[in-house]
């Protein structure tokens, strides 16, 4: 979209060239202030999210310090390689998100749409792998209350507190998966808007703010992966 695409009412005289640029909402002084306000707003929301997920992590580590042996045993039963693969998938999607924002910054609108689509595809791959992993967990009778066995598939008895680790595992990963799905919807809308020419080099704040959200989803997983899968001893 070029500056000439922006409609200016004929009866309104032009005051200066600024009128030709994408305009900001009236409560803001200029585009820069509007952009910064949006970014700050997203960070305030993310600060909430950090504390929201933070409580789960704190609870986990407190309980782990009490029932170390059972938590390590439970972690060994989880499918670590899917967790690892999913971390790589999310890191890659975060990279594409960052490069989409970069493309928006340099005005390469088509590249923005393409990279957003890569990001969305990788998010769906993550989700698919996670669902497959839940299937394996179900098969191994690792779902407390619904399908749980006190004996592992290898025939060794499971520790008394393994279900506690599993409750943390399901609560944290399902909550994270919900964030992934919200991200897919959000990024799809942004990709569509971008495709329709709603953003340009001077105004792409929604792409940037959606990117912040997506990187946060990656950030949570960066901590969930070692916490749930890697504390095996």
């Amino acid at each position: 979209m070029t500056t000439s695409d922006i409609a200016i009412p004929a009866d309104e005289p032009l005051r200066n060239d600024v009128e030709l640029l994408p305009h900001h909402a009236e409560q803001f002084e200029d585009m820069a202030q509007q952009r910064e306000s949006a970014t700050l707003g997203m960070w305030v929301f993310l600060a909430n999210e950090i504390l929201f997920f933070g409580t789960i992590f704190v609870g986990f580590y407190v309980m782990r310090s009490r029932f170390e042996r059972d938590f390590a045993e439970g972690a060994r039963e989880l499918v670590w390689w899917i967790g690892c693969l999913n971390t790589a998938v999310l890191l890659l999607s975060s990279y594409f998100m960052a490069s989409a924002v970069h493309a928006a910054n340099t005005g390469e609108t088509r590249a923005v749409t393409r990279r957003l689509i890569y990001t969305i595809i990788l998010a769906l791959v993550f989700f698919g792998l996670k669902m497959g992993e839940y299937g394996i967990d179900w098969h191994d009778k690792l779902v407390p209350l619904l399908n749980y066995s006190t004996v592992s598939p290898e025939g060794t008895p499971r520790g008394q507190h393994v279900p506690m680790l599993l409750c943390f595992y399901y609560f944290a990963t399902l909550l994270h998966a919900l964030h992934v799905l919200i991200g897919v919807v959000l990024l799809s809308i942004i990709a569509w808007m971008n495709h329709r020419g709603r953003f340009n080099q001077h105004y792409y704040t929604p792409v940037e703010v959606a990117g912040l959200y997506w990187h946060f989803v990656d950030l949570v997983w960066i901590f969930l992966f070692p916490t749930l899968y890697l504390l095996r001893h």
Partner: peptide, 11 residues
Amino acid sequence: MHAKEAHPSPS
């Protein structure tokens, strides 16, 4: 179409 960056950002 490699325009200049509108905002400072990583390369």
